[in-house]
């Protein structure tokens, strides 16, 4: 349900959220998360473009959570990396285009419950909550 890239992004944000007043160098984030460096720099770049992370170059520079980013739901992160479709899922578990509440597939109702739980998780959890 969550791509590897989005999982990595959440991990990066968790590290940054735990130290909101510091700038962390790329190497530090890499060491803390275990994410390969070139993969990580792409993720950080996307987070920066989306306004979740700010970066400063040069001596004393590094990455920091953007001031208001802590209050954003992690759903926003999923939308950035996995797209709207995977954040607001309405798909049938079996991928049947004709499945709906009038003509439900065998898993329809329970899958709707799973989806709702997932939606609750990603809307209720804020980026700052990842710091725990």
């Amino acid at each position: 349900m969550i791509s590897r890239t989005a999982r990595y992004a959440l991990h990066v944000l968790a590290i940054l959220a735990a130290r909101p007043h510091e700038r962390l160098r790329g190497e530090e984030v890499a060491a803390a998360t275990g994410i390969p460096v070139n993969y990580l720099s792409k993720i950080l770049n996307q987070l920066r473009k989306a306004g979740l992370v700010e970066s400063r170059k040069g001596w004393g520079g590094g990455f920091q959570l953007q001031a208001e980013a802590g209050q954003r739901p992690i759903r926003d992160v999923l939308v950035i990396f996995d797209g709207l479709e995977s954040a607001d899922r309405h798909d049938c578990a079996l991928g049947r285009p004709a499945c709906d509440s009038e003509h439900p597939c065998a898993m329809h109702d329970e899958w709707a419950g799973v989806r709702d739980g997932f939606t609750r998780m990603i809307t209720a959890t804020k980026v700052a909550d990842l710091a725990d």
């Binding site: 329970e110 799973v114 990842l130």
Partner: peptide, 13 residues
């Protein structure tokens, strides 16, 4: 950080 919430999603799945 998502352990409890994810456990609930997983259990229903």
């Amino acid at each position: 950080p998502l352990h409890d919430q994810w456990s609930r999603v997983r259990d229903s799945y």
